[in-house]
Every structure is written in C-alpha cells, then in structure tokens.
Amino acid sequence: MSYTGDVTHGGPPAVRELDRLTVTKLSVGPMDNNAYLLRCRDTGAQVLIDAANEAPRLLDLIGDAGLTSVVTTHRHMDHWVALEEVVAKTGAPALVHADDAEGLPIAAQTLTDGDTVAVGDQTLEVIHVRGHTPGSVALLYRDPAGTPHLFTGDSLFPGGVGNTDRDPERFGQLIDDVEQKLFGRLPDDTWFYPGHGADSTLGAERASLPQWRARGW
C-alpha cells in the first residue's frame, strides 16, 4: 500500500520507502503522539525522532539495528516519556535544542539552528522554530532523489501552527518562524510530518497562512 501517513494508536506503523531513507511512523499513547524511525537504506543506521511513549513498542520497532541518536523535537513531556528507557536500552545519545535541554529527564547533547544530524550517509538539518517552546525544532531531510521531507514536532500541523496558549508574543514568534524558515525556504511539494495526527504538504497549507496569522492561533 502507498504511504498516506495515517496511523492510529495501537495500530501498525506506516512505512515510506524513499530512495535513500526509510521513514516509519508509529502512533503511541495516550496522547496519540507520532514517533518516527528513520533508517538509512545504504548503511542501516537509524535515528528516532521523539521517543514519546510506549518504550517496548519503540524498541521492537528499532530492533537489533540500534540507534545512532534520539532527537526530541521539544521539551513537552508527551514527547519524551520513553526517552530514558530507549536511551538506556540502545546506548544512543539524546539530542535536543539547547533552549529545551533543561526540560528533559536525562542529560542530552544540545543542538542549535543549522546543525545537522546524521542518519547513516544521509543528513537532517536542524531548524529552530520558536514559540511552542523556546527550543522547538523542525528537522529537514532534502531527499536527493525527490521532494523535501520535514519533521515539525508540534510547531506545524495541517490547519495551523502549534499551541502558544494564546500568548501574543509566543504566537508571533511561531507564526514568523514557520512562515519565514519553513514556508519561505521550502517548496509546495515539501511533505511534513507533525508530532500528532496526519501529515500534509506545505502547498496544501500555504494559502491559509494569512488566516492563521489573523486569528492569532
């Protein structure tokens, strides 16, 4: 079956085979978080984005290949409940933006805007997107054989940006960063994978940016 990005809590993962990278999306509970396992098809190296919950399911997904690293997109607890156990079982370093490092339950290596994370011989670019939390990041994979792929955590969803608790300053930061650093840099066919729920493309959402800004959330 072709990849749609539709997963349900307790259901099977969705697998997308790119030319050089395999993306596996799994929903874990109880808040229907998305965890993403990226595997380099040439080397077998793997990176996990958001060890959100249900460590046994994540470890089963990871298998014997282990992990190169675990990236946490932001410091909210629902995105790292399984982090300590996954790191303990795999020995993989935990990575998080410096501004969110204090919110994690274990010591982590810190990231900053423009850093890269290796997935075997492929790379993810770290994009700092402020507002949902001070250190939220999106991770960009520029597929050499196709469209860009963007893992947005809770900063961008189909239908709007992430929650900023109706704080005008935080919302301004988030909508500005999403508009400038994501929509302003990447083409419409960029596929994005959020921290909860369904995927989308930047092209499907771009026309709604003025509406999001006007409504203030």
Rank of each mutant, 00 (worst) to 15 (best):
T72R: 09
P56V: 04
A101N: 01
L58Y: 09
V137C: 14
Q109H: 07
K89Q: 14
L48E: 09
H128A: 14
V71E: 10
P134E: 13
T73G: 10
V117E: 09
H76T: 11
R130W: 00
I49P: 07
A118R: 15
V126P: 09
L67C: 02
R57S: 11
G114A: 09
D100P: 05
H74G: 07
T68F: 04
I106R: 13
D113P: 04
S69T: 12
H79Q: 13
P144I: 09
T112R: 14
T133K: 06
I127V: 14
L58R: 08
D42C: 05
A55R: 01
L95D: 09
A92W: 12
E85W: 03
V96A: 12
A52Q: 04
V71T: 14
L111H: 07
G63H: 00
P105I: 04
L67Y: 04
A88H: 14
L67T: 06
L140Y: 10
Q122F: 00
V126C: 05
V96C: 13
L95F: 09
V119Y: 08
A118Q: 12
V86K: 02
D99F: 06
V126N: 06
A98F: 02
D113M: 09
Q46P: 04
L59K: 02
E54L: 01
E84C: 00
D143F: 10
L140I: 08
Q46E: 08
L104H: 01
L61S: 00
T68R: 11
G131F: 12
L104D: 07
H74F: 07
E125M: 04
D78P: 05
V117Q: 03
A45C: 04
H76P: 05
V126Q: 11
D115H: 14
L139W: 09
L95N: 07
W80M: 12
G44A: 01
G91A: 11
P56R: 04
D143K: 13
V96Y: 08
M77R: 14
D143S: 14
A88N: 10
E102P: 04
H74C: 03
R75Q: 10
V47D: 05
D115R: 04
V137R: 10
L59D: 00
R75N: 00
T110M: 02
A92Q: 11
L59P: 00
E84D: 14
D121S: 13
V70F: 03
D113H: 15
Y141A: 07
A51W: 11
P56S: 00
I49W: 06
I127H: 03
G91K: 09
I62R: 00
T133H: 05
T110G: 03
L61F: 01
S136C: 13
T116C: 10
V126G: 09
D42Y: 07
I106Q: 08
L58N: 09
T90S: 10
L95S: 11
R41G: 01
E125V: 12
D113R: 08
R130C: 03
E84F: 01
L95R: 14
E54Y: 02
D143Y: 12
T110S: 01
D143W: 13
R41W: 01
L58S: 02
G66S: 07
E84R: 15
V81M: 11
G114K: 09
H79P: 01
H76L: 13
A92N: 07
E125R: 15
A88D: 14
